[in-house]
Structures are given as C-alpha cells and as structure tokens.
Simulated scan of single mutants.
Amino acid sequence: MIQSFRNEKYDHKVEILTPISGQDHTYALLATYEGLAEMELQNKKMFEDEEYKELITEFFLQNIVQGSMTTQLFRTMTGLKKETNSQK
C-alpha cells in the first residue's frame, strides 16, 4: 500500500526489495529521485500529507522493531566507461 501510494501521488519511484539470500526478515525500500533536492522536496510533501502519515505510522507500529531500521543514501555513477590500455 505504501509503495502504491507513493508511486501514484509523489514524484519519485519506489520499489520493495526482498532478500534472495541471508536474513529472510530483511527488506529494503528503494526510492529513486532526480536528485538530493528532489528527495528533500518529496519527503517534505509526504510528511505534510495526513493520509501518508497515517499509513506509514500504522505500518511502523505493526511491523518494525525499534532500533532495527537503517537509512542509506546512494548515488548513481553515470557516464563511466571501461578504461583502455592507453588510458591506464
């Protein structure tokens, strides 16, 4: 529900990743934004939205153990090309 809500209402893409190895109870929510400024803008909109806050609060209270979450930020590395011998 959270994934669908965010994909339909906000300007970013959300995917839920499930493990194929390792700890079965570990899941990841992958949100893709145009950039860091866009992430901040979309997060501000989400946490001003009472419907979203109600949805996310209920999910956290029912499914998340306190202290078990981590947040990581990654960036894509675009434009990288394989080095040739002359470039090394």
Rank of each mutant, 00 (worst) to 15 (best):
R75Y: 03
Q87T: 12
V65F: 02
T76C: 03
Q72Y: 03
L36S: 09
S4C: 02
Y52P: 06
F47C: 08
K81D: 03
Y10W: 11
L17F: 07
E40I: 11
L17Q: 07
E58K: 13
E48M: 05
M1R: 07
Q23Y: 01
T71H: 11
E8Q: 15
M39H: 07
Y33A: 00
M77E: 01
V65A: 04
Y10H: 09
L80F: 08
S86D: 08
K53N: 11
Q72D: 02
F59P: 04
V65W: 00
N43F: 08
T71D: 02
S4P: 01
E34L: 09
K9Q: 08
E58Y: 05
E50G: 09
Q23M: 01
N43V: 07
N85E: 12
L17P: 02
Q3C: 09
N85F: 15
T84D: 03
E40F: 10
E15L: 15
T70Y: 07
L73M: 07
E8Y: 09
L41I: 13
K13M: 11
E8D: 14
L36N: 06
N43M: 09
E40K: 15
G79F: 03
Q3H: 09
T76M: 07
M1Q: 05
A28N: 13
E48C: 06
E34S: 14
Q72W: 02
E48V: 06
L17W: 07
E40R: 15
N7Q: 00
D24I: 05
N63P: 03
K45V: 06
T18S: 11
A37C: 12
H25C: 04
S86Y: 13
L80H: 04
K82E: 05
